[in-house]
């Protein structure tokens, strides 16, 4: 069934701004997979079964930081490297050494 358009342009300027189909995409919206973040089923590594040291995962957290920002594992805690902060690694090439540069993240 063809969807009804929610908005109709009424003047010339609005018509100019009217949405255009790009790359042949359809109006069907699939919401099964957001861009970037949480692309992979991965729970459980955060729970730690060890009764003694090393007591937590990962150790140190700095060693896991870059890779968490890459596939967007912790988008609130790490820069989202796929969508919003694709070049954040230029500030922090090795987090263990460069973590002070994380005081602010420059958005592209």
């Amino acid at each position: 069934m063809k969807k009804k358009k929610a908005l109709k342009p009424v003047n010339k300027r609005a018509k100019k701004l009217e949405e255009k189909e790009v790359f042949g995409m359809s109006d069907d919206i699939s919401t099964s997979m957001p861009i970037g973040c949480t692309t992979i089923f991965d729970t459980g590594w955060e729970t730690n079964p060890r009764p003694e040291t090393p007591m937590s995962n990962c150790l140190s957290s700095a060693r896991d930081f870059t890779s968490c920002s890459g596939p967007c594992w912790w988008p609130a805690q790490t820069p989202d490297n796929i969508t919003n902060f694709p070049d954040f690694q230029n500030q922090c090439r090795a987090i263990e050494k460069d973590w002070r540069n994380l005081n602010f993240v420059i958005k592209r």
């Binding site: 701004l17 009217e18 949405e19 255009k20 189909e21 790009v22 790359f23 995409m25 997979m33 957001p34 861009i35 692309t39």
Partner: peptide, 8 residues
């Protein structure tokens, strides 16, 4: 994984 944006 593919996401397409609409213009404007």
């Amino acid at each position: 994984a593919i996401v397409k944006k609409k213009q404007n």
